[in-house]
Design a protein around this nucleic acid. Structure first.
Lengths: 209, 209, 209, 209
DNA sequence: GATGAATGAGTGTTCATTCAT
DNA sequence: GATGAATGAACACTCATTCAT
């Protein structure tokens, strides 16, 4: 049986709770094993050390995000794709508030190596976003401007909203949040005429290739 | 003479460097006193403990930001005020990249009490922003929508851009960054007709009061 | 069937390899069971604990040495008996370099109880040697002197040479080593006239007393 | 004041006692600090880690031995030089029975790196001895034979006698021990005609060069 | 005031041994 | 018997803080 995986997951889950509650440094291995209801040594049967379980939590969560979002297809209407993605990300964060808190507050500052990986992940997302924006600019559906500044601004805005949502004492109307964010995004970076977009896009696209 | 203050400032400055370079947890008191060129015990003559010097650094920096920004006067043209404020914040962060790094990456996750204060500060800023946005909405110069979501989004976007600017290996064109951010902001949250704003504003304002 | 004994021996053999390679403390039970290809728990089915398997290895090896050497018969020519014994000991050590290494480097310093036993074994050998030397002195074929110092010196010399032989990167000419050691021994402790030994011995003895 | 050195020495001395009594592995830092009457942390103010204090003890002791022995001058009478050296080594060991026990029983098997250094030290001594023996053989005052075997044998014999002396419950007549060892040595490796040695030596020496 | 030696609670990790399956 | 997951005592080492000089 996949007993091993069950145990592993149990420890991961409890560790997530502890990390979320106390933060990486204040979370002690003792807290984790107490929460998981296992002996100290058992922890080390499943994870190499404290940092590695934290890393695993983080990378698993990032993976969930990565598979939740779809690449924007510029030949299809943009708006629903963006809102769907934002909504999906909100769902992932909402489904695991513990990890959300960890990712958004604790994830930086552990050690140089870990930070490097984390920043690399964000850099990937940002690169994705940047290239999408660039494509959008070439298609004329995104306002001009430094695409990296745009990308950072959007990413930062999203992260902060996610953080506040996660911390929110009362449940929030997710759909309204998505709508509001999209409104800023749409007015802020997209040009006025999305209607004629798809045709033009096809043309330009074939022209480019 | 304010010898005491000089010494204190010297330690603060070096501590900032150390915190910026290593992060709060990896920064040891030893590193700080070594950098400051004082004895271990001397540190405790000026600061109660490690956390308190960090807190002081953070709150001083927040203070600098607070005095750098001016409240938006809706009777005056909005755009230059916003860009001036954003520019001022960029200047403050740019003038002290060490503190910028600390604020933007390390400041959360130390301990519950510290986090509370920090979040309170951000909450203040956010409240300011929220009330400005609300006022703007009432004046019809800000698009409708949940003003807290707006506030978080804008704040988050600003923070992320600041972080990237601080980390940027190459110097960036600050004016261009301000322009790009203002463009998003202006198109994203402001309505189309800022021209007629001031009069209407006066009217509505007087109507309200 | 002696299945049990086969298994036991298999573990013993692999444990010896591991102890020889890593030394007692650095050798982990995990290493031993991995080398033996059995489960952790199985080890404890055959041996009470880590120390006891080590003890068994050591005492078995000592036993092999003990049965390899013959007591010196002073009524027979001495030289070939000594060289035969030295050669036999060299053979035993040579046949099991792993145990040789263990005995000669690791065997002391584990814990008080183990050390006591080990020292007791060496004390036995030394007593044997001492009594042989004493007999030899009485027969006049061994130079006078403190027989315990003699015994220790010879034993220590032998041990060191064995150690070096075991560690030697290149194969050594065992016969030559035996010859060289015997030469020192013979010249160093035996008197000049082994041929006429028994008679002369009696004479000298009466002369001395 | 050399307060620091005093403290350091105090810890070294107590550590030596503890290592001698319990052996390296059974000796805990707690035992050392308890014996030294200092706090746990104080230990680490003076020594980098457990191994390094052990290393320092060992290398200091080796240094004491190294400066206690004089190189044999073949143009001078050999016997007194050898006995003086043996006697000096006996004195060093006798003056510090704790270190003697450590060196002679514990020093091997800690870790690969430490063993390497230790064996290198012994290799140096052995090289010294080997070259002395070779010189002696060329001068005709040392019997032929593999000089490394000779060297190991002598060294091993000496080590064992030292160990037994150190462990001896009753005080021993050091002079007698030296005499007995020299007797074996002299008869065992030196040729019969030390009388004509010095002249011949000078001649052969000049002849060689 | 300044110093830096001393402190000791705290923590991650190891590993011999046990025991339910 | 065999297994290997679980255990938890033990230990080296860290570092913020104190205090005698």
């Amino acid at each position: 049986m996949a007993q091993r995986e069950v145990r592993r997951q149990q420890i991961l889950d409890r560790a997530r709770d502890v990390f979320a509650k106390k933060g990486y440094h204040a979370a002690k291995i003792d807290d984790v094993v107490a929460a998981a209801g296992v002996a100290r040594g058992t922890f080390y049967l499943y994870f190499h050390d404290k940092r590695s379980i934290f890393e695993e939590l983080v990378s698993r969560f990032f993976h969930r995000i990565a598979i939740a979002v779809s690449r924007i297809d510029v030949d299809q209407p943009i708006a629903p794709q963006i809102t769907a993605n934002v909504s999906a990300v909100l769902d992932v964060f909402g489904s695991d508030p513990g990890m959300a808190k960890i990712i958004l507050t604790d994830a930086i500052g552990l050690d140089v190596e870990f930070d490097r990986r984390l920043l690399a992940f964000y850099a990937d997302i940002e690169a994705l976003l940047t290239s999408s924006l660039e494509e959008g600019q070439q298609l004329g559906i995104v306002h001009p401007g430094d695409k990296r500044v745009l990308a950072h601004f959007l990413l930062g805005g999203l992260k902060e909203v996610l953080l506040q949502l996660t911390h929110a004492p009362v449940p929030v109307d997710k759909a309204a949040v998505v709508r509001d964010m999209y409104a800023i995004l749409s007015r802020g970076v997209l040009t006025e005429t999305p209607r004629t977009r798809s045709k033009t896009a096809v043309k330009r696209k074939s022209a480019r290739s």
